[in-house]
Amino acid sequence: MSDLPPVGTETDPEAIKAVPLRRTGRWIAAVLIAVAVGLFLWGAATNEAFHWSTYRRYLFDRRISEAAWNTMQLTLLAMAIAVVLGVVLAILRLSSNPVLKSTAWVYLWIFRGTPVYVQLVFWGLFPSLYKQLDIGIPFVHQFAHIQLQGISANFVFAVIGLGLNEAAYMAEIVRAGISAVPHGQSEASLALGMSWALTMRRTILPQAMRVIIPPSGNELISLLKTTSLVTAVPYSLELYTRSREISALTFEPVPLLLVAATWYLAITSVLMVGQHYLERHYSKGVHGRTTRAPRNFTIAREGK
């Protein structure tokens, strides 16, 4: 008799066993990297030139922690100025008005074309260039007079210098994000009776944030490290300068550099976590956002 099942009858399909692919090269690479990192850490831990006792003594020193807080204030305040001014400059760059567009382009040309250290030196010399700041109606009436040479505003000048420089880069980031939104979105909003300002606030900018957030996070982290240049103002209460001053007294520069690097890494880690959640928030609804990449499998029949 035939081994074939009768016509019209159903049989259970043969079971399939999915076996994950072996990643031998991946495990070998992981072991080699772990060994290399372990050897490096062991060599650094046993090297007396690092002066780890000095590192532990100054890691949470009050002067270092205060300098780290000042560095965070410099970063956040300067970034706030940069974001607000960057949005304005980006809108001017996209404007059809040639005067406004040219003004924004000249601003970007100057602040992107000159080193930030040179700009900070200029802000440090600002009280020498302008001894008095008048507030009021030009050539008519002055409401207030501020003597710049009589005040100590190095922190303010450092924030202004960093913020104005960073605004030039944020403007291009925001402009790229706005340009990435399809033009039909703004046309649809205007057709619904929304004003131009409401269209930008409710339609364009929320969609542009998906493009703006990642490079803005990188700019924020870069700005954190750029604060080490505010000695040009001069402002000496930020993290790097304070650690360098302490190392000049102890004659041990290496452990104090490690202390500053540790604080920079800690602050950067916090900023990166915040960037991650911002990106996830503005990426809601994007196609494939929550789709996990499939794993590679080999298929083996039962009994083989």
Score class of each variant (00 low, 15 high):
Met200Gln: 08
Thr241Met: 11
His141Gln: 07
Ile146Glu: 00
Val99Glu: 01
Ile28Thr: 14
Val31Lys: 07
Tyr169Phe: 15
Lys225Arg: 08
Leu239Gln: 02
Leu39Ile: 13
Ser222Arg: 06
Val35Asn: 01
Phe157Ala: 09
Gly163Tyr: 11
Ala15Trp: 00
Ala191Trp: 01
Gly113Cys: 01
Gln132Ala: 13
Val35Gln: 04
Pro255Leu: 00
Trp52Gly: 00
Met194Phe: 15
Ile110Cys: 06
Lys131Trp: 09
Ser247Cys: 01
Ser179Lys: 15
Ala191Lys: 02
Thr71Leu: 09
Phe60Pro: 01
Ala45Arg: 09
Arg23Val: 11
Leu85Lys: 08
Leu162Asn: 04
Ala36Ile: 13
Thr226Met: 13
Arg210Pro: 08
Val254Tyr: 08
Tyr55His: 02
Val116Ile: 11
Gln142Gly: 00
Gly193His: 01
Ile135Trp: 09
Phe60His: 03
Tyr117Gln: 14
Arg56Glu: 03
Leu256Thr: 02
Glu14Pro: 08
Leu162Val: 10
Phe122Ile: 14
Thr226Gln: 14
Thr291Ser: 08
Leu192Phe: 08
Gly163Arg: 00
Thr199Pro: 04
Leu198Tyr: 04
Val84Thr: 07
Phe139His: 09
Tyr107Arg: 01
Met79Phe: 13
Ala266Ser: 06
Trp27Gln: 13
Leu148Ala: 07
Ala78His: 04
Phe139Lys: 11
Ala208Phe: 07
Glu219Lys: 10
Gly177Arg: 12
Ser102Phe: 08
Pro5Leu: 09
Phe111Glu: 06
Gln119Val: 14
Val35Tyr: 05
Ala261Asp: 02
Arg242Phe: 04
Thr11Gln: 14
Ala261His: 03
Arg93Ala: 07
Ala188His: 03
Gly113Met: 05
His281Val: 12
Val99Phe: 12
Arg175Asp: 01
Val181Gln: 02
Ser283Arg: 12
Ala167Met: 12
Val106Arg: 02
Gln119Ala: 04
Glu219Ser: 14
Lys304Ala: 07
Ala29Asn: 06
Val35Ile: 13
Ala232Trp: 02
Thr231Cys: 05
Ile160Met: 13
